[in-house]
Write a protein that binds this DNA or RNA. Structure first.
Lengths: 365, 365
DNA sequence: CTGAAAGCGCTTACAG
DNA sequence: CTGAAAGCGCTTACAG
């Protein structure tokens, strides 16, 4: 029984000497385990485990010996093994789409940051489509025993929601609401935001007002539109045009251009409320670059989100700000509350206030 | 020994009936396990495991019975338990910073997409600083037994690299190179890109040329500068100005403004090469919005990356394109090669070609 | 093809 | 405070 000679597989130069040589295989060094540390320190595995469990009862001397041994061996606890016995992975699944809209990278950054602070990690999934395999992929993520799952701007099938609920894993919808039982929700005051935009535009004297939706079935877009329309109605002004930008910058640009090209100039909108900044950039490109219109003199534009690019010199977009930082904080706080073992994990619905940021794409009031 | 009555803890309505009632505790239903399925199907756990292991030998009838039982019970394999016994988590750690530069969200999206296709998942870490706790956090991510780790635009301490190497976990540096042994590297032909930018600018007749670096110790920025300077030197033109934008848009804008304000107008640069697009937007804002200069007539600008915003109407930035999709593909291909058990996991260095995209911030040649 | 058994690296009642 | 032992949910030689 001789070992095959294989020079191309590097033998690590630091195989722990305290491990049985029985395997004898080449390959990477097996990591040092809790048992190794126990042996080295001359204590039980329980003792080692306890010294790495905050709040567990270990004697001062035991702890010291363990720590010293662990240090000498370069011991790193295996989070996977811990997960298997505690049933807590300290991972949360984050599902996100539309990373081209800067709102979401920002959210990812803030959420991971906060979660990391609490000792949690992010298992990421990018799901472009809400299509059929969205569910299957969610199920995949659940196999990793995530402690919770947050869905950013994505619909959740009610079947999956029920599944999570039964399994006791909290789910939070971020920047979207849904009529699904048992899920938490963190969103902005979207209706209020729509109202803010409408009132502002009305006060500037705009009367030929247009709205661009994101996706017709997205709650976020619907709510913004509802608030916007209600305010318009209250003022007695009808909508001049409405279109759908699919949350895509390119689509928004094309749709805008087509709308103008198909209409007589004297019927052109003099103001736009666009369901998010990302599409508003496309609208502005159509207006200024393609149609050679002057903004805000010929036509005003208000977006939603206040992503970083809205402040860039090339756009200076007036917009309704979503406070993503507060939204992220609320999400994590809510999660921590639900992770608390002696807290009944009631789903919560939180809504964060919005504010209008005045910049250069509107006339001012 | 009566159970405490606690109405606030919901009792799930679908506790599996086939599980022992011994525990009797309330709380979420325990997920059905492989053992449950084995019992239900009247076979061994090995049989169940095998029917869920592609390529394992199971009888047709056994497989059918197992599948049927699994289906009836709604069985979902526990990836954590599998990881513990196979020592393969099918998770890769992705460390990223600067999510405000759209290049990285794009990379995250592409990388996750490809990885998902191969049955892998992304454990994400956002590490803003290369500071002291970067290492500790990397170590944390390693505790989750990731099969590999990819570092996007982040330095790697050589100590940590050695650690990974000893543990046999592949690490790949994405969009950065480093003189560390045993790590793979995926980057663009940065020097070539710098040369392209210089040659182009030179051909437009620019002679008072400036360069803005990202971070002085970032390999990417260094290489771009080196190629750029070499080409300038070859042409016998000296650099008019050099500054460092810290890979920050705001910093780039401030630094540019200050540079102009401190110099006599007749010594102002007539062309800029900026180490990435993200900073170039800041430079453009300074030039156009703050300094009221005309681009490209008064001053030309070339960036690097070709992020989506470079094509937006508000900027139309001429830039050296990095092919992030090919970079992502190369990364995943490289990883899959290293995961192949009968492949010696040699680190690789891959460099992807770049191309210059001409837009409206340069004069044309 | 199939099953009994050991093992992956932890944690956690349970006794002492 | 401490340790022996069982268990978390899988996989995988090893026999048959």
């Amino acid at each position: 029984m001789t070992e095959p000679l294989n020079n191309s597989v590097p033998v690590p130069d630091d195989v722990s000497l305290n491990r049985s040589a029985a395997g004898g295989s080449s390959g990477p060094a097996a990591a040092t385990t809790l048992a190794d540390v126990a042996r080295e320190a001359g204590v039980s595995t329980s003792a080692v485990s306890r010294t790495f469990t905050p709040g567990a009862s270990v004697g001062k001397k035991t702890r010291a010996r363990v720590l010293e041994a662990a240090n000498r061996l370069g011991y790193r606890p295996n989070a996977i093994a811990r997960t298997l016995s505690t049933r807590k992975s300290r991972m949360v699944g984050l599902v996100v789409s539309y990373l081209d809209n800067q709102f979401y990278p920002t959210v990812i950054e803030q959420l991971s940051h906060l979660l990391q602070q609490h000792g949690y990690h992010v298992l990421l999934f990018i799901g472009r489509d809400n299509g059929p395999d969205m569910d299957s992929v969610l199920l995949e993520i659940l196999q990793y025993q995530v402690d919770a799952i947050v869905l950013a701007s994505t619909m959740l099938s009610s079947g999956l929601a029920a599944h999570c609920r039964a399994a006791g894993i909290p789910v939070v919808l971020f920047n979207r609401t849904a009529p699904v039982a048992g899920v938490s929700t963190v969103a902005s005051a979207n209706e209020e935001g729509g109202r803010l935009a409408a009132d502002y535009l009305l006060r500037t004297g705009a009367r030929r007002i247009a709205f661009m939706a994101g996706l017709d079935d997205a709650s976020t877009s619907q709510e913004r539109e509802r608030g916007f329309m209600a305010a318009l109605q209250r003022a007695g002004v009808a909508l001049t045009a409405r279109c759908v930008g699919q949350y895509s910058l390119d689509e928004a640009r094309v749709v805008t251009r087509e709308l103008y090209e198909a209409a007589r100039p004297d019927t052109w909108p003099d103001a736009w409320f666009v369901a998010n900044d990302h599409m508003a950039f496309g609208v502005l490109d159509a207006l200024r670059t393609d149609l050679k219109l002057r903004v805000p003199d010929d036509v005003q534009v208000i977006g939603f989100d206040n992503v970083p690019q809205a402040a860039w010199g090339g756009y200076q977009l007036t917009t309704v700000e979503q406070d993503s930082w507060r939204m992220a904080q609320a999400t994590v706080a809510l999660l921590m509350r639900q992770f608390d073992p002696n807290h009944p994990a009631h789903p919560e619905q939180v809504v964060i206030p919005v504010t209008l940021i005045e910049r250069a794409t509107t006339l001012g009031v």
